[in-house]
Amino acid sequence: MYNPQLTEDGKLRHLLSIEGLPKTIINQILDTAESFVGVAEREVKKVPLLRGKTVCNIFFENSTRTRTTFEIAAKRLSADVINLNVSTSSQSKGETILDTVDNLTAMHADMFVVRHAQSGAAHFIARHVQPHIHVINAGDGRHAHPTQGLLDVFTIRRYKPDLHNLRVALVGDVLHSRVARSEIHALTTLGVPEVRVIAPKTLLPEHVERLGVQVYHDMTAGLKDVDVVMMLRLQNERMAGAMLPSAQEYFKTFGLTQEKLARARPDAIVMHPGPMNRGIEIDSSVADGRQSVILPQVTYGIAVRMAVMSILAGNNG
């Protein structure tokens, strides 16, 4: 089947979504990331793999955190980095996405890291860039956030190396979450036998079970005996309205507290893609507790993004 993110000989050309990525490529990225974890701990935190290359962060939607991690990753690979916050510049002047992309191409960028509020934006850009340019999806609408999905499975693999023997639960707003979709595809592709989603019906997409997950609507049953709890961020605008009555009630029913976490296995780890809403989806005592691996996720995020960029740069022509 046609796969827009692979070259004709099956190598990674763009990273647009985890869905459709072969397991071998995911493992290649994770293994490469292992080799970069050490770089950050050295005196000189740089390797020359992307020397002379220009990485362009095009953010049609604001995100300081994600942009920063991509920027650090590119710089540790010795690339030149341009940050373009399009939401506050050209688009407001009526320039189309393609105009923006064409202009950056004319400036000889080699790699685009793209974030956009619309699902499919990264695919759209990848379809229209010149063949030598690589596109990395840094989040498109509700669709995908593949580097987040990868860094999450990388983190899981570090704490729970036997992926074939795991129970993982995703908790919260799956409907609007590109992170959830990427995590689900990453976990199922790597052979995690049981992936659960736990959420009220208003925050789950139709036919979510067809993504290969088991659906739960209460934390007590859903968290029972899981090895990994992956919390999802609840956007402010969804906290009170037709989706949910109030943040308080959400915390009561789906917020992760020590008490609810006790249903999971004693050595279960707790993850969150950030930024967290303390007291809404997660209690501070859990976020800062001994089972939390939320900060290591951030650290590994840089290694995983370095891995993706270096593999893409190595797959030219």
């Binding site: 869905e19 699902s119 499919g120 498109d140 609408g141 509700r142 669709h143 995908a144 590109r178 979709r181 997409p205 139709e206 036919h207 979510v208 067809r210 993504l211």
Partner: peptide, 15 residues
Amino acid sequence: HDGEVAARLGLRGIP
């Protein structure tokens, strides 16, 4: 359509 494809692609659905 608010179904499998919209769920996968993250597109807003029309049931």
